[in-house]
Amino acid sequence: MRHAFRDLRRRNIAPWLTRYLNANGGTRIEIHPVDQQGVEARHRRPLRVRNKNIYRWGPIVQAWASQNFLELEHQWEWEISDLDSDHRSYAYVSHIGLLG
């Protein structure tokens, strides 16, 4: 029952969320890199929090709403591909924040 509720909620909120995130030309996000605490100190890379504007939220929200994690990963890869040579460091992140 709980899964059915979450599926319905995702499906119902997706159109609103897409409109909200696309309003005013997109939404700026703050990307926090993956937590490297489990990585030996000598192998850690100096990563910083990055900011990026995303202008095309429809495919991302649709992948999330349908729980298509392969497509969500593909859309994320496309969005971070312009983060210079460190873009692979942001393929798996600890979290993102929406900036007003």
Rank of each mutant, 00 (worst) to 15 (best):
Q37L: 12
A65W: 04
I13V: 12
P59L: 04
D84F: 09
S89C: 14
Q75M: 07
P33W: 10
H95R: 14
L83H: 05
S81M: 08
I80L: 07
I80T: 06
S89N: 14
D82Y: 04
I80Y: 07
N22C: 09
S89Q: 13
L98A: 05
I13H: 05
H87R: 13
E73S: 11
Q37V: 08
A4S: 07
R2E: 05
Q62L: 08
A23I: 01
P46D: 15
E73F: 11
P46H: 15
I96K: 01
L70A: 13
A41I: 14
I96M: 10
N12F: 05
N24L: 09
P15I: 02
S66T: 15
A91S: 11
N68A: 08
L8K: 10
V49A: 07
N24V: 04
G25N: 11
R10Y: 03
G58M: 09
Y92R: 13
R9T: 05
L17V: 03
W64N: 00
V49H: 10
I13T: 11
L17M: 11
P15T: 00
L72C: 03
Y90M: 03
E40F: 14
V49E: 06
A91M: 12
H95I: 00
Y92T: 07
I60Q: 00
G26R: 02
F5M: 04
D35M: 12
G26N: 05
M1Y: 06
A14C: 03
I80G: 01
W16Y: 14
S89K: 09
D82Q: 12
G38S: 12
V39S: 10
Y20M: 11
Y92A: 06
D7M: 09
D86Q: 13
D84W: 11
P15M: 04
R9Y: 08
P46E: 15
E40R: 15
N22V: 01
D35Q: 12
A14H: 04
V61E: 01
N68P: 02
G26D: 06
R9L: 11
